[in-house]
Amino acid sequence: MSLSVIYALLFYAATLVLVIGVARKIAIYSKTPQPLKIPTTPAPLTTSGVVWRMAKEVAVFQSLFKSNKWIWLFGWLFHVALALVLMRHLRYVTEPVWFWVNWVQPFGKYAGFAMLAGLGGLWLRRIVVDRVRYISSPSDHLMLLLLMAIAVSGLAMKYVDHTDIVALKGFMLGLMYFDWQPLPGNPLLITHLSLVLLLMFIFPISKLLHAPGLFFSPTRNQTDNPREVRHVAGWSAK
């Protein structure tokens, strides 16, 4: 089998694992009982207040900012940069390319470096801070290493050894149209794609899955109305 066929099949498998895996986890989260009324106070008194609180958590990581400025700085830097980089990558899967994806290209380019800086800071924290190093498992280090390797291989294609991105886009669109096109065999590109595939496979069973988890955190998603409304959920409902 040629490289193109192997990678096409791997991408289909990885997409299935990612989508089904994350959906399954979200289903499990949604079925997990939240028997107690435990919003961290001061907490919003209305549902719209909860939406606002959650929006702040998603956009600026408010709780993290309150608890640790360094982790917040590196973590937020990484996530915002990652968002820009992902937006930039949309050019490979849209034809014609959406107008705002054109606008985001130059920002996404430099976001690659910001992403690496954020990840570097987070990794340094796991190595340098004694009490954090003590509780860091091998997977914590390997996850950061994987993300950094993805960023480095991507940046290397941009700044060191170019790849035929027109042919690459043909390959990616070919997967979506079920009309396979050849994958350019540039070693850096193959490395980059292989690492991304690995990330897609392990994402649903890793701690990188904290994004959907946030929405199911009782201390964040509950309204502070225990006297107005009787809280019945899970075993407390029986």
Binding site: V166, G170, L173, G174, M176, Y177, F178, D179, Q181
Partner: peptide, 13 residues
């Protein structure tokens, strides 16, 4: 149904 779909858009250089 798949084969009925349009082919992959690739630039004609």
């Amino acid at each position: 149904v798949t084969p009925v779909w349009a082919g992959t858009p690739v630039p004609e250089i």
